[in-house]
Structure formats: C-alpha cells, structure tokens
Simulated scan of single mutants.
Amino acid sequence: MIIYSKLPRDLKFTIGTSVVIIKKADDNPDSLVPGCSKNDIADELWEGVLKVYGKHVAIKRGFIFASKNDKEAKAQADEIKDEKTGLEKMDPDNVPGVQRNDDPDVKNAPAQQARK
C-alpha cells in the first residue's frame, strides 16, 4: 500500500514485532505529490497501524493517508496543503513572546558579562 505523509518528521509505529516508519514530508517541488513523502508499506502492516494507532492525530486529521495512485494522493494533499500539523519549523524572527535584540554588544558578549 502507498502511504503519504505531510509531517515534517519521520513517524514510527510498532505493530507486534514489526516497526513501520513513515518518512518525513518531501520538500521536492518536482515530486508527484508536492509536500508529501511516499512510503510503500505492506497492506497487513498498514491495517495494523490503523487498528492500533487509528486515533493518532496525524491519521485522524489526514496528514498521513493511503492512496491508490499519485493522482488521487495529489488531490488529497491539495485538500490539506494549507493546514498546519503543529510540527512546522518556527520562524526565528517571529517567535511569540520573544523580542529580538539586535544589539551587537549583547550578541558578542561573553556569558559572564551578559549575566552581570
């Protein structure tokens, strides 16, 4: 079965003695399904993942999904392309509650001086 993932991190599921690893999303713009990784998982393992982990937020919200072909997967990926997974990288210049300090003396001060 072909499983696609929009998550920016690998995800590991344990099914009995087997481990299923869903690879992180692919940033390749030339990908057939942009913004998603493509994982080939045995049908019985994927069914096990759904049985044991079917309530996982990434599966419930459609960030990890099975598809019959790339065309169908692209349509599913387009539906969720603007949704946030909560695992996206933060913009260091736009962190809520943190004010940027551009004072060069503070950036280059040794740790002992900065504590004074």
Rank of each mutant, 00 (worst) to 15 (best):
V106S: 11
K68N: 07
L7D: 04
G54H: 03
K38W: 02
K12W: 04
L87C: 08
I2Q: 15
N28Y: 07
G48C: 02
S67L: 01
D82Y: 10
A73K: 05
A75P: 02
N108L: 14
S5Y: 04
E83N: 12
K51S: 05
Y4T: 02
D27F: 12
D40N: 14
G54K: 04
N69G: 03
M1N: 07
I64A: 03
V33T: 01
G48R: 01
K68S: 09
L32S: 13
Y53D: 07
K6Y: 11
G54C: 08
Q113K: 13
E83I: 13
A75Q: 04
T85P: 05
E79T: 12
N39V: 00
N94G: 08
A58Q: 07
D40S: 14
T17R: 12
A77I: 01
S31R: 08
G48T: 08
I15H: 04
A66S: 08
L50C: 00
G48P: 02
L7C: 09
E44N: 12
V19Y: 01
K51W: 05
A58T: 10
M90T: 13
M90L: 14
I22P: 02
I21S: 14
I21V: 15
D26A: 11
D102K: 14
E79Q: 14
S31A: 15
A77F: 00
D105R: 04
M1W: 06
K71M: 13
K71R: 15
D105E: 15
D70L: 05
Y4M: 01
